[in-house]
Design a protein around this nucleic acid. Structure first.
Lengths: 340, 340
DNA sequence: TTGAAAGCGATACCAT
DNA sequence: ATGGTATCGCTTTCAA
């Protein structure tokens, strides 16, 4: 068998199966109007010649790419969501074109967005790093591409969204701490340029109020990046204000940084200061044993995939907003790290 | 200005600029054979009408997609590399089609790969979760798409690769521990289905030998996934064998799990057991203060991008292998986490 | 320096 | 149920 220099096209298949291009196309697209026997012949030919549709050609004709554009601020953080989304979309023959704004600002978001749109993605899944940017809002409004916002609210843009409600988990966390005798709780959280940042601050304030804590005892330290700097400054600030508990809504790296800083100050956890961490819901993930606010990764991915698929299948229904929530896990085993 | 129902094509531009499609195409592709004045007129028209090339059409004609396929086992772990790669490739107008085999096996790798190839990517960047699979090797051999392996070695496949040398860092780490008085070092590392897993084990053994440690004092605990299970079992096994130092070559989650397990055993760090962790090289990343083996994320991404670009530009040179290395950072501040 | 026309590989309409 | 043909938007000879 000679090595074909050129990959087979539907015309090759048509000839091999003794039918027309049209019929091959029908088989490819699962049209019902094909005789079973013909379908078999075509399928055989496809398998025999190792035919694969040329997606560029199909795309040109149908003006659909089978690609979903994904914009996230930091890939490592959104990794599990991206992964889950990728898996679900792949089941429907959709590919994921990924871009990260690398934890930056609105202009960076726009650049990435334009690249995705320029490639003609069929839908966008967006977690811009600044959902308050007017330029972003204007740009999104100008798009016809269907889109789903990932826990973001962009003013004046009516589109599908998956939102995460942080209030119940914060309420539970604060209750847990208060029941444990804590009276002054501090929050270390992200900046307010995206919805979760704002919701966490608001939800925390509400939770403290509901738990009967004096307003003065709620402290918020906000940082642009949830890195070492955030951990150190956050801990120092909060200790300074006399907190006896900290809720940290960031990555495991933030948690580690906070633990280290507390250790440097000689503060015992949880004896002197309680720590509530942030994690992913799901069996696969390492639990530190600390009380944790768990983010519903799979759920978010599932809801997002569903919305995307429905739009790609052509739904023009009014924008839908799905809401899910973080969950507070009390944590069975407190983290006791021994003194060196 | 009426809203165009249909996005402008080069024909629209051609008419608006009073030239032919051909000329517009020449401008688009930066051909030298265009009069400066003509070029300007065309550029104006492009800007005025908000024209964007239809990549599907271009792709059909040139049989290049401008897409690079990326296969990684776990997105969160490869996040920084993906991000950096994405950024560099974007500068050259290339998009990244991402797939993860979700920490699974060879069949999963193959599925993802076929999807990427089916989409006609111009190049592949691969970190399969099992680089010893014969099926994978056979499949890769059958491909014409240029590819770059990310710290993987696939038998019988001659292609570009970026490899990471772990030996020097391990040597330095072991020396550091021995100088510190440690005599029995354990290693907690990943499975041997990929190159880094094998290299770490081999490098560790060599380092121990070079440091004059008895062979019996080197212990390796291998796990499929570097999660909580790995941390607990690894720590238990190693303590059981009487180690006074542990080198953990996994994510921050593994480190956290190990710290926790040690704490549960009431073992002080570093007083009783020293811990060397694994991290990313670079200023952006949180350092725990513990001695660390740092992975050269940016360097790997840069080398990879360079290899990819060179192939995409048509290089048919003999396969190139770039080698970089992890670096041992002694760590200034040991992690003292206070007892609760 | 510029343009006319062919063609990339599919799909979709209209016949039969 | 099947086939012929125009067409999607661009690049690429080949001529002028």
């Amino acid at each position: 068998m000679p090595v074909n220099s050129r990959p087979p096209t539907i015309l090759d298949i048509a000839e091999a199966a003794g039918v027309s291009k049209t019929t091959v196309s029908r088989v490819l697209n699962g049209s019902a109007r094909v005789a079973p026997e013909t379908r078999t012949r075509v399928r055989d030919a496809i398998a025999r010649l190792g035919f694969q549709v040329n997606l560029a050609a199909r795309s040109l004709r149908t003006s659909r790419t089978g690609l979903v554009g994904l914009l996230v601020p930091v890939i490592s953080i959104f990794g599990l969501i991206v992964e889950s989304l990728d898996g679900q979309l792949a089941e429907h023959g959709l590919g994921v074109l990924l871009t990260s704004s690398r934890r930056r600002d609105a202009p960076r978001d726009l650049d990435s967005l334009e690249m995705l749109v320029g490639r003609g993605v069929d839908a966008l899944v967006l977690a811009p790093s600044d959902d308050r940017s007017p330029e972003l809002a204007r740009y999104l409004r100008s798009l016809r591409t269907p889109m789903v916002l990932l826990d973001r609210e962009v003013r004046g843009v009516a589109c599908d969204a998956v939102l995460v409600d942080h209030a119940p988990a914060l309420l539970a966390a604060v209750r847990h701490l208060v029941d444990d005798g804590r009276q002054m709780i501090g929050l270390i959280t992200r900046n307010d340029r995206t919805r979760p940042g704002r919701e966490l601050v608001a939800g925390f304030a509400a939770a403290c109020a509901a738990a009967g804590l004096a307003p003065s005892s709620t402290h918020v330290a906000e940082f642009v990046d949830l890195d070492q700097q955030a951990a150190q400054t956050g801990v120092d600030t909060l200790l300074d204000r006399g907190v006896d508990a900290i809720i940290a809504t960031g990555t495991l790296a933030l948690t580690a940084g906070i633990l280290e800083r507390l250790a440097q100050h000689g503060v015992g956890v949880p004896s002197e200061v309680s720590l509530v961490t942030w994690g992913h819901a799901g069996p696969e993930n390492l639990e530190t044993g600390l009380p944790t606010i768990a983010y519903p990764v799979e759920e978010v991915a599932r809801l997002t995939a569903r919305l995307v698929l429905s739009r790609i299948e052509g739904s023009t229904a009014t924008p839908r907003v799905e809401v899910t929530r973080t969950v507070f896990l009390p944590g069975d085993v407190p983290l006791h790290a021994a003194v060196g």
